[in-house]
Simulated scan of single mutants.
Amino acid sequence: MQPSARKRPVVLIVEDEFLVRIGTRAAIEMAGFDVLEAGDADEAVSILATRSDIHLIFTDIHMPGSMDGLKLAYFVRDRWPPVKIVATSGRARINDSDLPEGGRFLPKPYSAAEITTTLRELIQG
């Protein structure tokens, strides 16, 4: 990895559907972020526990495993308060108020432009 690449904000995508995850990864990388991937909340927590450079999680709400995306969002807020949170779903419609303070909801299907705008707003401001 080049030194300049390490200065880019790091986003952790938590998505159990592989094709959705790789499409989201491409959009986030094109927006200028470094990306890590997890297939479920348990894997995400393991990654967060070993990395101190993650700025934001972009998580699906409906996932298999010990916790869904909403539970993950609250767990992350409690354990890693500086990490920003974006939750997404094609099935559930929630309000930002259903997420930890400062969290955002982005309904599926989302565009690359919507992802870019949301991530930049959260990370920059």
Score class of each variant (00 low, 15 high):
81 P>E: 07
65 G>I: 13
34 D>G: 11
114 E>V: 02
58 F>I: 03
65 G>T: 13
1 M>W: 13
111 S>K: 11
90 G>P: 05
72 L>G: 02
114 E>I: 00
22 I>R: 11
116 T>C: 12
15 E>V: 08
102 G>F: 11
29 E>P: 04
35 V>Y: 07
118 T>N: 05
93 R>M: 08
9 P>K: 08
18 F>W: 13
94 I>S: 00
56 L>A: 11
9 P>N: 10
92 A>C: 03
42 D>A: 15
114 E>D: 14
56 L>H: 01
31 A>W: 04
98 D>Y: 06
61 I>T: 06
107 P>H: 06
6 R>K: 15
49 A>D: 12
26 A>E: 12
28 I>T: 11
47 I>Q: 08
97 S>T: 14
68 D>C: 10
1 M>D: 13
119 L>K: 07
51 R>I: 01
40 D>H: 15
114 E>C: 02
25 R>F: 01
12 L>Y: 11
13 I>E: 03
121 E>K: 14
62 H>V: 14
76 V>S: 02
95 N>C: 04
125 G>M: 01
16 D>W: 12
53 D>E: 07
60 D>V: 07
41 A>P: 03
69 G>Y: 13
98 D>G: 02
41 A>R: 00
10 V>T: 15
95 N>H: 12
118 T>L: 08
68 D>V: 10
74 Y>G: 07
100 P>H: 13
96 D>Q: 07
31 A>T: 04
80 W>T: 09
68 D>S: 09
63 M>K: 03
77 R>D: 12
113 A>H: 09
1 M>A: 15
76 V>F: 02
77 R>S: 14
3 P>A: 13
46 S>A: 15
14 V>H: 07
68 D>H: 10
117 T>C: 00
13 I>R: 07
61 I>L: 14
54 I>M: 06
7 K>W: 03
12 L>A: 08
83 V>Q: 04
43 E>C: 12
99 L>D: 00
105 F>K: 00
55 H>R: 13
83 V>E: 06
115 I>C: 06
33 F>Q: 01
42 D>I: 11
12 L>V: 09
91 R>C: 03
3 P>N: 13
100 P>A: 13
10 V>K: 12
99 L>Y: 08
47 I>A: 05
110 Y>F: 15
54 I>R: 09
87 A>K: 04
77 R>M: 02
37 E>R: 08
88 T>G: 01
72 L>R: 07
47 I>F: 04
86 V>S: 08
17 E>D: 15
40 D>V: 09
27 A>H: 07
40 D>L: 07
26 A>G: 03
110 Y>L: 03
47 I>H: 04
45 V>Y: 01
71 K>M: 11
13 I>Y: 08
13 I>P: 05
95 N>A: 12
21 R>T: 05
83 V>S: 03
63 M>Q: 05
73 A>G: 10
14 V>Q: 10
85 I>W: 01
23 G>K: 03
87 A>F: 00
53 D>F: 05
69 G>T: 14
6 R>L: 15
45 V>M: 13
